[in-house]
Amino acid sequence: MRNNSLKLGLFLLIIAGIAGLGIAYVNEITNPLIEQQLITNKLNSFQEVYVGAEKITDESEKYLDGDADSILTEVNVVYEKNTPAGVIYTVEPSGYNGKIQLLAGFDIATKQITAIKVLNLSETPGLGDNAKQSFFTERFKGKSAEKNLEIVKKEPVEGNQVLAITSATITSKAVANGVNAARQHFMDNFIK
């Protein structure tokens, strides 16, 4: 009996071992591809929020003092001829159903938002989900970084107002919160 259960245990161990090796092998093959993809995706997204950015350096360590509660997760500075021309922030504000990850680009010369792009979100399909659509992100383009952005439900009248997505005010506000946090940091650190 004892001998038997030992045998069974050994059998399971062998199967698990083979399984582990198999998975490790596939991981070996796919991991470089996945990493590569993450990098290209990131660069492409950076290009989208700051068109024509050539030299981008990650300066998160310099600007973010390791504050875990901050919703700012990355600061990437765009250089033109060795002087900072713009900043691309990665922010993770809390949405309706977990965190929303988005990029916000700012131009130092014009003090304007160049563009924003939603990378990841798990909001309600058909409602909050629309935050990643261009019709919504376009509404942030060219807004001044000097004033706090405000989400409104009717056609905006002031320059700092942004029209919410229909029936997804919470998500819209979350996106605006993220952009505002980046905006504040941008004004404090890059505009003198």
Binding site: L8, F11, G22, I23, T30, I34
Partner: peptide, 30 residues
Amino acid sequence: IPDSIRIPSYIVIIATFVSMVEMLMHAYTP
């Protein structure tokens, strides 16, 4: 496969293939 531990063995086998498919999809159809 011994009869008395067939279910755990099946689960390990299935989980292995699922992990592989998961990684392949992550790499080729992100």
